[in-house]
Design a protein around this nucleic acid. Structure first.
Lengths: 130, 130
DNA sequence: CTATATTAGTTACCTAAGTAATCATTACCT
DNA sequence: AGGTAATGATTACTTAGGTAACTAATATAG
């Protein structure tokens, strides 16, 4: 049994646990933040664009977007193609984004504090090879 | 936003999806296999030993062990301390372990095929620093 | 133009993991 | 010895992800 994959699973679990903890004060979970940030970067998107970009299955995004909409972070409207659902950030989301970004940066700095810039690049490249 | 953590989450999701696929023919999920392999390595263990070693919370192991017991992979008995629950592999689990190991090795080889031995060591060390 | 295929999204049901609260049992302290 | 604290395990409830099967709308082939 190769320990690398086990280690990768462990770190992934650990980091998402810590990230959830850090995001608690904004009343958000890690996966929810991922969706919000994705839409922030791309502007208005359809559900399909979101799940294809984030590399998850469609039902995952249906659920998360519904939850975020009912929490007031997202608003949706029908697209030109009436099958599509367009999603964008609410005013409130845009306002709070700056603060949340600070939390995220702090979390990332802490999570990667034992890695040099060089090591970060190296790790990124190795992960991409998997 | 630092892309490393995002990448790590992505690969973790992708790998566990693929591992689940590979284990389907043994009627097992990745997390279930992790518990079986853990007990195989350590011999009879208590629930607490398992969840501390695997770095997950207790309820996760309660659930997985219950499921594996009812599927015939594990058997449990009360420990000397009557709070404890000792878990060990069944005969059937020991017999099938060899075959499953083959599946796992094949999966790992495939997952890491783009990495040299050198890169694997490097990746392992970088992950441990997180 | 109509029948069929494809696409976007949803629903139902599953595993995996977490937190918080609870129950039994054992340890410990006075 | 008796009351309190700590420990091992479980239960209830939540998020996050997956698959399979479905509906509604649009594209496409004949």
């Amino acid at each position: 049994m190769n320990p690398i994959i086990h280690e990768l699973f462990q770190k992934s679990r650990l980091l998402s646990k810590e990230l959830n903890q850090a995001l608690k004060k904004h009343d958000l979970f890690a996966a929810q933040w991922t969706v919000i940030y994705c839409i922030f970067q791309h502007g208005e998107m359809t559900l399909t664009q979101i799940w294809k970009y984030l590399n998850v299955e469609a039902p995952t995004i249906t659920r998360t977007v519904n939850r975020l909409e009912q929490m007031g972070w997202l608003e949706t409207r029908e697209g030109k193609d009436r099958r599509e659902k367009n999603v964008r950030l609410t005013e409130r989301a845009i306002v709070e984004l700056a603060e949340i970004s600070q939390t995220i940066i702090q979390f990332e700095d802490n999570a990667l504090k034992n890695l040099t810039e060089e090591e970060e690049k190296l790790l990124m490249n190795l992960l991409k090879k998997i």
